[in-house]
C-alpha cells in the first residue's frame, strides 16, 4: 500500500508540475528572467504555483502532521514521520543552493521536471538527467570527505 501511495503521489505531483508550467523550461526562464518586466514579457504565474502548493501543504502540516509527530504518532502507512532533524544554517546549505540556482537559471530545469520530461524520450533531457545524477554522485563523494556533513533537507 505504501508503494502504491508513493506512485499515486508521484502522479499527482508530476501532473501538477506539467499543468502549472513548472515543467516547461521556457516558462521557468521567462519567470526567472525578471528583466523581462520592462518589456511586459515577464511571466509571474509560477509565483502562484508555489503559493498554491504551500496553501495546501502548510496548514495540513501544521494541523495534522506536526501535532501527531510531537505526540509520537505516525503517518497512515508508516510507523513514524521521517522529518529532517538538522537545524543549523551552514555553508553546504548555502553553497549548494547557490550552485543549484546557477544550474536552474541556465536552462530552467530542476530535478522534478527533469524526471517528468524524461517521458519525452528526448536526447537533451536524457543528457541533463545523466549529468544531474553524476553531479549528485560527486556531491555525495564531496560530502563524505568534508568534515561538515549535511544529509537530508
Amino acid at each position: 500500500m505504501k508503494k502504491l501511495m508513493a506512485l499515486l503521489c508521484g502522479v499527482l505531483f508530476g501532473t501538477g508540475l506539467m499543468l502549472s508550467g513548472l515543467a516547461d523550461p521556457a516558462k521557468v526562464i521567462s519567470f526567472l528572467d525578471v528583466s523581462l518586466l520592462s518589456s511586459g514579457q515577464w511571466d509571474p504565474s509560477l509565483m502562484l504555483v508555489m503559493s498554491s502548493a504551500l496553501a495546501v501543504y502548510l496548514p495540513v502540516y501544521l494541523m495534522v502532521v506536526k501535532p501527531r509527530a510531537l505526540a509520537q504518532q505516525g503517518p497512515v502507512f508508516e510507523s513514524h514521520y521521517h522529518l529532517p532533524t538538522k537545524r543549523v544554517i551552514d555553508a553546504p546549505l548555502v553553497i549548494g543552493a547557490a550552485l543549484f540556482g546557477l544550474g536552474w537559471g541556465l536552462v530552467g530545469i530542476c530535478p522534478g521536471p527533469a524526471i517528468v520530461n524524461l517521458a519525452q524520450f528526448d536526447l537533451s533531457i536524457m543528457l541533463f538527467v545523466t549529468a544531474m545524477i553524476v553531479g549528485g554522485f560527486l556531491g555525495r563523494q564531496l560530502m563524505d570527505v568534508m568534515p561538515v556533513t549535511a544529509h537530508n533537507a
Binding site: 553546504p92 546549505l93 548555502v94 553553497i95 549548494g96 543552493a97 547557490a98 550552485l99 543549484f100 540556482g101 546557477l102 544550474g103 536552474w104 541556465l106 536552462v107 530545469i109 530542476c110 530535478p111 527533469a114 543528457l127 541533463f128 538527467v129 545523466t130 549529468a131 544531474m132 545524477i133 553524476v134 553531479g135 549528485g136 554522485f137 560527486l138 556531491g139 555525495r140 564531496l142 560530502m143 549535511a150
Partner: peptide
C-alpha cells in the same frame, strides 16, 4: 547545468 543542479541539490 545538469551537473550543477545535481551537485547543488546534494550539497544543499
Amino acid at each position: 547545468s545538469g551537473l550543477l543542479v545535481g551537485l547543488g541539490c546534494t550539497i544543499g
